[in-house]
Design a protein around this nucleic acid. Structure first.
Length: 274
DNA sequence: ATTTTCTCCTGCATGC
DNA sequence: TGCATGCAGGAGAAAA
């Protein structure tokens, strides 16, 4: 379940491995993942081209050349792993990007919720997958609390669902929404419009700290997430509430609860998060 | 217009 | 042991 910290960890590794390198060739094994992979256009953009930049936007990774970019979304179970060309091919390998240095990156995704897409030079911000994304929670250039406060005034949604709206703020998925609300001692069912600016300031601080700590730990691996070298993250050992239903709250020892909000599991402490 | 539900898919846990 | 069932979930599409 890659969210912002997992994608950021991956992007940093891919950037180190790929920046300045040339993509020698591309091989597609299964172009019909969530959406058909634009194999022809991706080949035009990448083959024989040098990688200029590798960046994250929300939960998307963008690998740029002077012709455009490859967009990658890991979905639920996607991996983007560096391999030797002689390594055995993992099941569910859908695409391979061969690098001039003899290594290659492989996109592996058992559940096929992920996507590979092409981004033209002219649409790095206007591409349909990118244009509607909300703010980056770790950007320092603006007031996250103020943004959340303003965006929530006209909403009926509860704060947990609101936080997970990628048109409001990107990268906060099911795990980090639950974790940051627990840290901020806010009940996930609280209507977002009823929170005051002061409470959003506290919440924003905790969103940033939990995401930053998770990046430092290489992300959270519950089942599928791996970095480019196939290594898991380690932040799952620091999770306070996610997946901890019926375990004691780390703060007050009250038994943690699980509920469903907008079809997603939410974990919380019924005592701390009143 | 906003918000909820559905959909995509496979692997794993559960229950009989 | 084996099979059926259900659940997990990011995010766009569809429905409400």
């Amino acid at each position: 379940m890659p969210e912002l910290p997992e994608v950021e960890s991956l992007v940093r590794g891919v950037r180190d491995a790929l920046l300045g390198k040339r993509i020698a060739n591309l091989v597609f094994y299964r172009p019909d993942i969530r959406e058909p992979i634009p194999t022809k256009r991706l080949t035009e953009i990448l083959r024989g081209k040098q990688v200029n930049d590798v960046v994250r936007r929300g939960k998307y990774m963008l690998i740029h050349t002077r012709e455009g970019a490859l967009g990658v979304h890991l979905g639920m179970s996607g991996r983007f792993v560096v391999s030797r060309q002689s390594d055995e091919m993992a099941p569910h390998t859908h695409a391979v990007f061969q690098v001039e240095d003899g290594m290659e990156f492989r996109f592996v995704d058992p559940r096929r919720f992920g996507r590979l897409f092409s981004v033209e030079l002219s649409e790095t911000t206007t591409h349909p997958f990118l244009s509607r994304l909300g703010v980056e929670p770790l950007d320092d250039d603006f007031d996250l609390a103020r943004h959340l406060f303003d965006a929530s005034r006209s909403r009926k949604q509860c704060v947990k669902v609101f936080l997970m709206d990628s048109e409001v703020v990107v990268g906060v998925g099911n795990i980090y929404a639950s974790e940051s609300l627990w840290r901020a001692k806010i009940n996930p069912q609280t209507p977002s419009k009823s929170l005051q600016l002061r409470e959003f300031k506290n919440l924003a601080r905790h969103i940033r700290s939990v995401l930053s700590e998770a990046i430092d730990a290489g992300g959270t691996t519950l089942r599928d997430y791996r970095d480019k070298d196939g290594n898991p993250g380690y932040f799952q050992t620091n999770l306070a509430v996610y997946g901890k239903e019926s375990k004691p709250c780390p703060r007050c020892r009250t038994t943690l609860c699980r509920m469903t909000q907008a079809g997603r599991s939410t974990f919380f402490c019924p005592f701390c998060q009143k």
